[in-house]
Design a protein around this nucleic acid. Structure first.
Lengths: 353, 353
DNA sequence: CTGAAAGCGCTTACAG
DNA sequence: CTGAAAGCGCTTACAG
């Protein structure tokens, strides 16, 4: 007939000691005799004592919970971030409350406010394209790009792009098409700019944005890559693996062999990128490192805010850290083909796409 | 110099009324004059009052937070679940705490315990393959398959498989290869069994499991699909889109045209499935519906537990609901090719893979 | 080395 | 229609 969840008072009564002593024994704070401490801990285990977060939070003013704001949980890029943040936060003793800044305007601000309402001690946020993170009393760590105003930490997208470009140049590609999705994305621009930074000596570099093509052709319309191939473009460097997948299958469907006749590269090293045929050359973020740095900065900001008490101090976590990315070379990238089709044929071939 | 976050007492003092009245005004519980109520709400807004979750939780015994346990957040299948659970939970006034039952043994139980430690009111869990969800005092909703012991709600994977199979039969396919990943997965087995249920009259049906092939050939080894094609198998029905992607690119790389020479189908309608070439025929879960049903059951269990007080009553949410799936026909599936290669050639062609 | 007491912010009977 | 008071479970000075 015992209640399923004893509290401190019951433990204390059961053991014939005071509440304070039990609390001290379990937290290891107050000095008390090792024997008593052990006796108390054993009893707590035996009786299945689980401390009340609510009581603790009310007393200490800290919830032990962090918020995580992601632009779109459905996006294949974010699960890995979520996973790593969850891992690192759990190790640091924090729980992670998720919030989705959906496609509504200002949803991001709303998500942040809801998290604060729930009493989170801090927030990790991956900002939506083109939004600004509002200043709050609550410490916030931002994961975006090194050039984002209050960015805390991010992958070095620019240098990642540079690595891809150097790889393509080393393979002998002279005419390279850069494929982005949305020009308003900080991350995508950093990657594209990084690629361009190494391609000044190439013969011809063009950038296309998928949202612009889809604005005319409709969702999931062909990108017309066979036409670019016919114009002599032999490398298709995409800002993300899903776009690379789209490019790769579009070229393959048009009868263009990868990598013999065209090279395709992506970004992010998504799970399936190594399983497809040919496996995709891509660039991998060091997510464990990024998550660790973001959380370190956040926890530090939380603690320093505690010290300086009620002053609405700037909960700043800016570090500008840029974590190196790693080029993962797989079979989808190969040497540039020697021969180039004549201009006349190119228009023909574009019809296949 | 005002503190950034006023509490009820400060609001009450500021307005010259009692704490209880402010609480009543904001919660709309106690009856009080509309004018006073409005005055109090306005002041609360103006002063930026945010109620303390900790105080409320301690008093009411409810945290307003739900836990979500996913087998592997990195798996591309789960973001959509997470997104929908988050959406529905937010609508119901709950926050969502995530937990990852990683690849360690018993990590799932640990995740559940940590969530309970954090004081969640209930848990939604998508069980890891082959694990059993422990019985707890905390209400748990399980999303797996209709045949899973305490399953609450799930997609009708069996019927989804049946739909794929009927589609393939209608297209005239006679020799069909079913491609699974892991035979210990409840979901995958349900899908495969559903497909088989409609294929008794087909000429030849075989099932291969990727983990078994990889056990011999190593991670991301070829599946040898060109050899199956050469044996006359014209349809490759996979239990999930990533496997379908693997199959589709492997066939395309071997020079087999999709859908002219082979049909490929997947499951789950992942974001990129409509963007690839050819777009993938797949089966879509009704996630909004599944999330809604799971949450309804969970919230009901939470409330009934509250009513029956301290009895560690069975927090059962079993419903056995099977939400219909929707076949999404795209260009990767087409009529079965008429001619079939001779047996002698098949061995040759298998070398391409 | 241990205990009595205050108080975190809220809600909920209950009294007026 | 409004207020005084108790108490949720914990931690933290402080007193002994």
């Amino acid at each position: 007939m015992k209640p399923p969840r004893p509290n401190l008072s019951e433990l204390a009564r059961h053991l014939g000691v005071s509440i304070a002593t039990v609390s001290n024994a379990l937290s290891g704070k107050g000095r008390l005799s090792p024997e008593l401490a052990k006796r108390i801990r054993d009893a707590a285990d035996r009786m299945g004592y689980v401390p009340s977060q609510a009581g603790r939070a009310l007393r200490t003013g800290r919830s032990g919970v962090l918020g995580l704001v992601l632009p779109d949980i459905g996006n294949p890029l974010y699960p890995e971030i979520a996973q790593e943040i969850e891992r690192v936060a759990t190790n640091a003793g924090y729980g992670v409350l998720i919030a989705n800044s959906r496609d509504e305007i200002a949803a991001q601000d709303k998500a942040i406010f809801q998290l604060i309402e729930r009493g989170v001690d801090g927030i990790v946020i991956v900002p939506r394209r083109g939004t600004t993170v509002p200043a709050t009393a609550c410490p916030i760590a931002i994961i975006d790009t090194p050039t984002t105003p209050r960015n805390t930490v991010s992958a070095d997208h620019f240098e990642g792009g540079a690595q891809v470009a150097r790889h393509l140049r080393a393979l002998g590609h002279e005419k390279i098409l850069l494929i982005g999705d949305d020009p308003s994305s900080n991350v995508q621009n950093a990657r594209i700019n990084g690629m361009r930074s190494q391609l000044h000596e190439a013969k011809e570099i063009e950038t296309i944005w998928i949202v612009e093509i889809e604005a005319k052709g409709g969702k999931s319309c062909p990108l017309g890559l066979a036409a670019w191939r016919a114009r002599g473009f032999s490398a298709f460097a995409c800002v993300s693996d899903p776009h690379a997948l789209r490019a790769l299958t579009e070229l393959q469907s048009a009868g263009i062999a990868i990598p013999a006749e065209a090279t395709v590269t992506g970004f992010d090293n998504l799970q399936w990128s190594s399983f497809i045929s040919p496996p995709l050359t891509t660039v991998k973020m060091n997510m464990p490192e990024i998550a660790t740095l973001a959380l370190d900065a956040l926890v530090e900001a939380i603690q320093s805010r505690e010290a300086s008490d009620d002053t609405p101090s700037p909960p700043v976590t800016a570090r500008k850290a840029a974590v190196p990315m790693e080029l993962v070379i797989r079979r989808s990238s190969g040497p540039a083909p020697k021969e180039q089709p004549a201009a006349g044929i190119s228009q023909e071939e574009s019809k296949h796409a």
